[in-house]
Design a protein around this nucleic acid. Structure first.
Length: 827
RNA sequence: GGGCGUAUGGCACAGCUGGUUAGCGCGCAGCCUUCACACGGCUGAGGUCACAGGUUCGAGUCCUGUUACGCCCACCA
């Protein structure tokens, strides 16, 4: 055992040193010869590479690292990979903003295209391959930064297992799983009303939506003699029916008759449906194709025709009308966006007298894409859908999953219960996993959408826009009797929902897969319960009929000191992850992160960083001190009551910290260890330092007992703190141990069983007496080293016994000449 | 509209299945000073546990209701 304790230990430089050592030593390398029951596997969230990471990400990823380090030390072989989610709408959005470009697939590829240094105001149209190149360049820059941050904060990832969701391997798995679903009929392509973002010109899924409270207005409009109220009068030309509740006496007689729409003079039926709410507006609604989700329901259930007017770009389509007067009216709104069209229609309604009174301003929730800037439209398009398993099946799986904290479960349940329809996985975008299918063209070059040609397994991964369909040659592309490739890409979640499968080697490495799947832990943010967590359960259910992991650890979010939720853009330089680490140190930042239990929110609190740093410093100094008394004899018996009491108390701390960690409560585990550590420094070290020095007339055995106890206690405490303060504990560990503290065993009470049953009260009482002596000195305004001629202790028989047991240590620590101990009332 | 979470000294939090004077840290006040640590040590002063009822011998801890903040879900014409 080598002891190499520095004279002036410092935190500076320590983190870089150990980061490099861990890398060269392969400290966190995954040993894949271990079997499933020896392995603890983590389905790490691949962060979306669409911007800088913010402190909240660092915070929650660190939580996972706490658990991972605990499990690793507890004897599990930990499979802890990292990944980047580098496809998806957010990345395209960021690419458009960063480089000032927009993708126009009709353009030809430009060799060596270089975007201007400063993004121009009007985006530059670029070809699809150019656009994808820019997306790739963007994510590569961010990925370098991401990896650097994870290494800097000390995540104990095995970087050999790094994956990217656009990599060929992942693309292959994603495409293969998709084709399996197609085979089984669980993925299908249909033409249906779809949620549509008019700016990004893509369809979306239910999970991509968010509500925004918007100003709007009820417009009371006459359909023949019936008044309806609508917030979207511009959709009157798309009206296909009116609908009232079947029990509504006001309209009962009218059901089955027809009315004529104002301005456009279209005859539409009056119908009845349960979903019409009598107390909303005038109690009768116009059904348009399509104004909102309810329209879709009515349209489907009442078998109504489609009268589409909304174009994919959010502008009204040209429509042909029989009546030239109507045509003239419509032509004034054709080509306009919804807002402009509304203004024009309202004017016309006012002129024609079909508008009753003035519009009534209201505030109502409108659906948006969560990153979009215009309200969503519902447009009929042809899309690939995945058929969800039944809600019952999904709720059953949810019930089997262990949530940390438990109350997050209900969020997933709520979401499942509110599901509508199937999962649209098609995006009319460019940077993503392509659908591995083609469609035949007939002699007139008409696409036969109904009989897609799937890729054969050996073709995967494949891009149907550059590779010919099986059985065809490239020169048949777009030719009569030839083929076309599927033009769309998959929803990014359609790929990342398979993360537990592809990190585990599904369809790639059967041996690995057998060792790590199903996984143990899914850590993730609460904001992606409805997406990542939900979709992953869906895929696990469809692919394997079971859970892809057993535990879900859901983190809260980080607010800035003003209690506002942090956003990527709002973070200022000082509060950037790197800024925080540079300022306070990685261990301090980790300490801060350890202060919030799973699922709980936290604030960026400079105070917490400070405390973390103080603790790290204290670990350095106290350890140096504890090791400074000379070599300890590993066989020296622990004999002194104060030493035995310390080990007893330490044993309880091990129990408490272990129990907390097992329950995914790293916060309580750290707090228990921290409390013990400070009393170790303040009381125990003070009590035994004289004895440990070998000063005074103590027997050699008493000195040996102290020295040995110090080393035992230090070794245990370093290991208890290692998951949180991974750098400083490693440094101190190296002073008197070989190997990494992170590969040392998690401390157990069994290690201390030799001294089990000791009286911990001795130390409690000694600290109590020492406190009283200190108080007296403080009140006398003298230093702590001032000698005390005589100290009097009165208490119960137990107190007396405990005090006597610590007598020599107390007298030394308090510099007490005479210690009078007896039973009696404390004064 | 339905649901979840949180409300404890100036700040940030702990208080498990209810049990003597409600804990910790920061901040604050006072003291100590270099023989581990000034990126320090010691001591101390701070709380009617959001509000109103109830159960109980006894409630911060259980029940009911209310309020505030945060969040999730909802077919929001």
């Amino acid at each position: 055992m080598s002891t190499a304790v520095p004279d002036k230990p410092a935190l500076e430089g320590l983190e870089d040193k150990w980061r490099e050592r861990w890398e060269t030593d392969g400290t966190y390398a995954f040993d894949r010869t271990k079997t499933r029951e020896q392995i603890y596997s983590v389905d790490t969230p691949p962060p979306t590479v669409s911007g800088h990471l913010h402190p909240g990400s660092m915070w929650s990823y660190t939580h996972t690292d706490f658990m991972v380090r605990f499990k690793r030390m507890s004897g599990w072989e930990v499979f802890y990979p990292m990944g980047w989610d580098d496809n998806g709408l957010n990345i395209e959005r960021r690419t458009q903003i960063n480089y000032g470009v927009i993708c126009d697939p009709s353009l030809p590829y430009v060799e060596n295209f270089e975007p201007p240094a400063k993004a121009p105001k009007d985006p530059i149209p670029v070809s699809r391959p150019n656009f994808v190149e820019l997306c790739t360049r963007l994510v590569e820059d961010f990925e370098i930064e991401f990896e650097r941050l994870w290494r800097t904060i000390g995540l104990s990832v095995d970087w050999k297992y790094l994956y990217r969701t656009i990599s060929p391997d992942v693309t292959r798995v994603s495409q293969a799983a998709f084709l399996q679903l197609v085979d089984r009929g669980d993925a299908f392509r249909v033409e249906a009303p779809t949620l549509w973002d008019v700016d990004f010109q893509t369809s979306l899924a239910q999970a991509d939506l968010e509500d925004r409270e918007m100003a709007g207005a009820y417009h009371k409009v006459m359909f023949s003699d019936i008044a309806i109220e609508t917030t979207r009068p511009e959709l009157i030309p798309a009206c296909v029916a009116l609908v009232a509740h079947p029990d509504d006496e006001r309209y009962k007689a009218r059901v089955g008759t027809t009315v004529r729409s104002p301005l456009f003079n279209v005859e539409v039926p009056v119908l009845a449906h349960e979903l019409a709410e009598p107390d909303k507006g005038s109690g009768i609604a116009m059904i348009c194709t399509f104004g909102d989700q309810t329209d879709v329901t009515w349209w489907r259930e009442l078998n109504l025709p489609v009268r589409p007017i909304m174009g994919r770009n959010g502008r009204l389509l040209p429509v042909e009308w029989d009546d030239p007067e109507v045509q003239a009216r419509y032509d004034t709104i054709a080509g306009r966006n919804a807002k402009q069209a509304q203004r024009l229609i309202v004017e016309m309604l006012r002129e024609s007298g079909d508008l009753v009174g003035d519009p009534k301003p209201i505030s109502h929730a409108v659906k948006f894409w969560e990153n979009g800037k215009s309200p969503l439209e519902i447009i009929t398009t042809r899309q690939w859908f995945i058929k969800f398993p039944s809600k019952d099946a999904l709720l059953k799986r949810t019930g089997e999953l262990q949530f940390h904290p438990e109350f997050m479960r209900v969020r997933l349940e709520n979401w499942i219960e509110g599901l509508q329809g199937d999962w649209n996985i098609t995006r009319q975008r460019f940077f993503g996993v392509p659908f591995p299918v083609w469609y035949p063209l007939d002699a007139d070059r008409q696409v036969d959408w109904e009989t897609p040609i799937p890729a054969t397994p050996d073709m995967l991964p494949v891009d149907p826009s550059t590779v010919a369909a099986p059985g065809y040659t490239e020169d048949q592309r777009n030719q009569p009797g030839g083929f076309v490739g599927d033009p769309d890409v998959m929803d990014t979640w359609a790929t990342s929902s398979l993360s537990p499968e592809f990190v585990s080697g599904y369809l790639r490495d059967d041996d690995l897969f057998a060792r790590v799947f199903p996984m143990d832990l899914r850590p993730q943010g609460q904001d992606i319960i409805r997406t990542w967590l939900f979709y992953t359960l869906v895929r696990g259910e469809m692919q394997f009929g079971g859970l892809p992991f057993t535990h879900a650890n859901i983190s809260g979010f980080v607010t800035d000191p003003d209690r506002k939720k942090l956003s990527k853009s709002a973070a200022n330089a000082d509060d950037s992850p790197f800024g925080l680490i540079e300022k306070h140190g990685a261990d301090s930042v980790r300490y801060w992160a350890s202060g919030a239990k799973p699922g709980r929110d936290a604030t960026i609190d400079p105070n917490e960083f400070k405390i973390g740093r103080r603790l790290a410093m204290k670990v350095l100094n106290a350890s140096r001190f504890a090791l400074s008394f000379g070599e300890a004899d590993d066989d020296a018996p622990v004999t002194e009551p104060v030493d035995l009491a310390l080990l007893q108390s330490l044993s309880r701390t091990i129990e408490e910290a272990s129990r907390a960690f097992e329950a995914y409560d790293y916060t309580t585990a750290r707090a228990a260890t921290e409390t013990f550590f400070w009393s170790f420094c303040d009381d125990y070290l003070e009590l035994v330092k004289t004895r440990a020095y070998g000063e005074g007339d103590q027997p050699a055995s008493a000195t040996a007992s102290a020295r040995r106890t110090l080393r035992i206690a230090l070794g245990v405490q370093l290991r208890l703190l290692a998951p949180v303060l991974c750098f400083v504990t490693e440094e101190v560990w190296s002073w008197f141990n070989d190997g990494s503290v992170h590969r040392a065993g998690w401390p157990t009470t069994a290690e201390l069983s030799e001294w089990a049953g000791s009286d911990a009260n001795v130390l409690v009482q000694a600290a109590h007496v020492l406190g009283a002596v200190r108080r007296a000195k403080t009140e006398a305004k003298v230093g702590m080293k001032t000698p005390v001629a005589r100290a009097v202790v009165r208490g119960t028989a137990d107190d007396v016994a405990a005090t006597e047991a610590a007598r020599a240590d107390l007298m030394a620590a308090g510099v007490i000449a005479e210690l009078d101990v007896a039973e009696g009332e404390p004064s």
